[in-house]
Amino acid sequence: MGQAWDFASVFANTDALIAGAIGTVRLFAICLVLGLGLGLLVGLARYAHSRWFNIPATVFVEFFRNTPVLVQMLWFYFALPILVPLEISSLAAAALGISLNTAAFSAEIYRGGIQSIERGQWDGARAIGMGWGQTMRRIVLPQAIKRMMPALTNRAIEVFKMTTLASAVAYVELLQQGKLIASLNFNPIEAYTTIAVIFFVILWPLVQLTYVLERRLKRDE
């Protein structure tokens, strides 16, 4: 010990950090939208009675929930380009890996939320002549979303944390920039501590929000 902590060189690289932050937020936004959007479709398919929807959805969910995201990411980055004559950028590989994983997890959240809506609501809607789609859209989902908010916000927090995995395929996000700064200035302590603090500062309010949502839900039920 005894060595003075050198945060100055970290702050000298603010533009690198900002570039990283932009990359993180961009990846986060893409994965959140794709993941939660696809998750809704898969969740509905999981809930459907028809085997044509149910079985493929179940296979999807089981596979992407039970494989590590990093493995999927590397597969998309190294393996997919061989199968398909496309350029797979690090953004694409990272986005695919994280989004599919998020879709699988959120599908189960959606399914659970929909199933928690008591059957009487379906009865009430059917009795006035509403079809499956109308009932889902107007009656069941609006009520289910409220119940799913804590779990879905949790998912969003996980997605934000997962963006760091993209550094493994050299995507420019916060951790990747941290690595860069550390290797250029030989100050891994300050660099990685700064990155950790940045994530903490961003995520802590969101985590508190989840607690508030959970408490409010418990109170309303």
Binding site: M1, Q3, F160, K161, M162, T163, T164, L165, S167, L175, G178, K179, A182, P188, I189, Y192, T193, I195, A196, F199, F200, L203, W204, V207
Partner: peptide, 25 residues
């Protein structure tokens, strides 16, 4: 508890692998 739940695991791993050895020698 809060710090380890609110920061990404990979950042934690890098910190323990690259940063801690320098601090603790």
């Amino acid at each position: 508890i809060e710090v380890f739940r609110t920061t990404p695991p990979l950042v934690q791993l890098f910190w323990f692998f690259f940063a801690l050895p320098l601090i603790a020698g």
